[in-house]
Design a binder for these strands. Structure first.
Lengths: 130, 130
DNA sequence: AAGAAATGCAACAAACGGTTGCGCGTCCTC
DNA sequence: GAGGACGCGCAACCGTTTGTTGCATTTCTT
């Protein structure tokens, strides 16, 4: 169900610093390594490496202008990533729900036994009540 | 908005191997390091380390039974993680939507200019069409 | 009691995220 | 237009993570 490309996307957005970088880029509509590093607790070089990673998986694109290298978020690719997140989330959610229902069923059965361990079915002698 | 604990949760589920392990554990309702490693492309020891990571952030719990050490998913904590995923996803989605609307607005304005760069309002000379 | 099965521990290699230091192009200003 | 300031890329290095292999230990089975 998950491809290698998807794994790359995941590990790209798995890093907290990279997630914050994407936030910043979305907020400002783009930015440079130096600019981003001023809002992050890491050096410009570390930011540059992260940008290279994000670029490699297509989550951002760069454009050189003079001595500046400006990065913008690729909306389509980020959409893909978001779809991945919600997909995995809903799969796990579904499994959790199933487990939860199962547990409740077992609990009900247990309580039933606790109430009357040997009592058979209710309606075995239900016909002709009078 | 994101705490250190949340970052730990994220990086725990950020690893593709660990995600597949959670999948397997959910499917089978629990499992051991040796058992999981048979369904994964890594050795038993690597799986054991991953299980230790997942245990440290509370996503799984272990119980020793004889020579076996069986791990189960902590439903509440996984729910937390899923909530995280969907939260980040919806934030990014919202930003993407905003950008998309903005782009469409600009596009409409551009097209309007292309149709008639200097034309003022539509209904200035609308009376007496003949 | 002996062997198979499961785990844990230790040493090691490679990749990752981070730092510092340096050199090179581009812009601004005097 | 010469010189400094600014932004960037490259290389070396360090600590942690992720993976391996090898071995000792515990527990089950026969």
């Amino acid at each position: 169900m998950s491809t290698a490309v998807d794994d790359d996307l995941w590990s790209a957005i798995g890093d907290p610093t990279r997630r914050r970088m994407i936030d910043l880029l979305l907020d400002a509509g783009g930015g440079t390594a130096t600019g981003l590093s001023e809002h992050l607790p890491v050096t410009r070089q570390a930011v540059a490496k992260h940008l290279a990673v994000l670029d490699r998986v297509g989550l951002v694109h760069a454009s050189t202008a003079g001595r500046e290298r400006r990065y913008r978020v690729d909306q389509a690719q980020l959409s893909r990533a978001v779809a991945q997140l919600t997909a995995v989330g809903s799969v796990w959610d579904a499994r959790l729900q199933r487990i939860k229902r199962l547990a409740e069923t077992i609990q009900r059965e247990k309580e039933a036994i606790d109430r009357g361990p040997e009592r058979p079915d209710d309606n075995t002698a239900d016909d002709d009540p009078k």
